[in-house]
Design a protein around this nucleic acid. Structure first.
Ligand SMILES: [Mn+2]
Ligand SMILES: [Mn+2]
Ligand SMILES: [Zn+2]
Ligand SMILES: [Zn+2]
Lengths: 133, 133
DNA sequence: TTTAAAATGCAACAATGTTGCAAATAATTT
DNA sequence: AAATTATTTGCAACATTGTTGCATTTTAAA
């Protein structure tokens, strides 16, 4: 966590450390608007570039459900420049709107005769524990 | 197909008929850029509004994979104003870039102890038949 | 501490999507 | 079929989102 930027071989700057701390603070995915609000002094351009670098280096991953605004979350598994390989699903609560990364015991397998599947993205929509009381 | 606009209770206009014909012509999902090119005379604003109405009425559905530009495809199942309920998966070929709607025999079920799932969206990424020769 | 490499932020731009409103067209009623 | 009503279209203007070149600043390496 602390040396993540060093491990990923990218320069350790105050801006990047702050963005990383914000993602670590949340245990769910967040959109850029939330990152912006949390930043003490934010610059749109630098934020876009930071997000892009974090995505490329496998520090965070992008989640888009039903064409809505993208959310971003820390990568829990080992991801790198060569790609992301998550074995978890993305859950969106229709009540509170929060998107969670949810680990599962057995990640489903799908076989399609006419297609060679290399990667599966699974998104679930419903109610989270808080909203389902 | 021919009376889809009437069935969905929306006005039958030349523009909408043309857009609908374009979606029917393709047997895969297409982005707005393709619709634009296919239209004889297109107007950005009217196209956006047409897409919005088609989505609301359950004529087409939106597909977004990995935060890339949205693609749209005709709804094969019965969808309406109350919602879309597809039981198929979306496959994106990393070689040709085409997104296909693929029907499956048994659509997977996922159970998460802490979440109530109402809908599952499954996206597969890999190689289509053409590109996997 | 000096040097080289990389990140930042401004300005300017590009792409994408939205809204009010008057004119045109489609659907409904007489 | 003509008149009336409801809906759609397209322009203008705006809002949001994302990108790029470049000079300055900061970080990392020597
Ligand atoms: Mn995730
Ligand atoms: Mn589909
Ligand atoms: Zn919730
Ligand atoms: Zn292909």
């Amino acid at each position: 966590m602390i040396n993540l930027l060093k491990n990923k071989k990218i320069s350790k700057t105050p801006f990047r450390k702050e963005v990383l701390a914000i993602f670590n603070k949340y245990n769910n995915a967040i959109p850029l608007s939330v990152v912006e609000k949390e930043l003490k002094a934010f610059n749109r351009i630098t934020l876009y570039r930071t997000i892009k670098v974090f995505l490329e280096k496998g520090i965070i991953h992008e989640i888009t459900i039903n064409g809505e605004v993208s959310n971003y979350a820390i990568c829990k598994e080992e991801c790198d420049t060569l790609g992301h390989h998550h074995q978890h699903i993305h859950f969106k609560c229709t009540s509170c709107g929060i998107i969670f990364c949810v680990e599962v015991d057995k990640f489903p397998t799908i076989i399609l005769p006419k297609y060679k599947i290399n990667q599966l993205e699974i998104q679930a929509i419903g109610l989270c524990q808080n909203c389902n009381l």
